[in-house]
Design a protein around this nucleic acid. Structure first.
Lengths: 128, 128
DNA sequence: CCATACTATTTGCAATTTGTCAATAGTAAA
DNA sequence: TTTACTATTGACAAATTGCAAATAGTATGG
């Protein structure tokens, strides 16, 4: 058995898959810095992310027009920070993402149902 | 808006993510040919897969010891077919996959809950 | 018997995605 | 002025994926 989630990866495949919608959702609460978002991803139940991955994703989202960014005027502590803000398009994409996750939920539930149903009926029947 | 699921991809990211557990589950029902599995993936609610992707995945699973294969003695129609069979290790991995999907379900549900709760309270508040 | 079509599997390669690490850059404190 | 901490970026290797074509057997029609 090898490469199970989180063993040799920075973060699991699943986690990465949730990065975009999670960022959109966090930004739906209001504008925020990349660094802040990085920390808040945790509070959404996703784990620690590699900063580079999060920043890169934000830039890609900006390229697609889902968010816009600007340098923060009042620098608190540290170097200039970029503030990201959701666009109308980003809001729409978040809505699409929610639909997509509904579908994902449906598939996961169907899979688990099929799994439990089958192993209940056939506890184990194959040779090693 | 671009690269939403299934637009420019053969199959969605999500679908690919379910390929391994789906194959393990199908094989838990009993040995089967790659081609048969390819067709049955549909019946699990996942869409059409590129054959090369499925065959390749089966080989990788064999490398990891989750399945074993042998050439089918009685060739029905067409070229020799490889029969895949789940191993005890594969059975265990399927169990782990189910646990992983339980966790995925939890995350998806939490995300959707947070999403609906928030957009209900804040229908729309950011500038374009 | 030759061409065509269908079942099955494999191989190779280009394109995309991901992970990692180091670089840059500002402020604050020792 | 060195060290530590906050933020962000860039570059590159490694892994993953999609696609197209090769291989190969059997069946069918002309």
């Amino acid at each position: 058995m090898d490469r199970r989630e989180g063993h040799q990866r920075g973060c699991s495949r699943r986690t990465v898959r949730f990065l975009e919608p999670a960022l959109l959702l966090l930004l739906h609460h209001g504008p925020a810095h990349g660094y802040t978002l990085l920390e808040r991803l945790d509070s959404l139940g996703l784990g620690k992310f590699n900063p580079a991955v999060v920043y890169r994703t934000l830039r890609e989202m900006e390229d697609r027009g889902w968010v816009v960014s600007a340098w923060d005027r009042e620098q608190a502590q540290g170097p200039p920070r970029r503030v990201y803000r959701l666009t109308l398009l980003g809001d729409e994409v978040l809505r699409l993402w929610a639909q997509d996750l509904e579908e994902t939920r449906r598939i996961v539930e169907e899979f688990l149902r099929a799994y439990y149903q089958h192993i209940e009926a056939h506890p184990m029947e194959m040779e090693a």
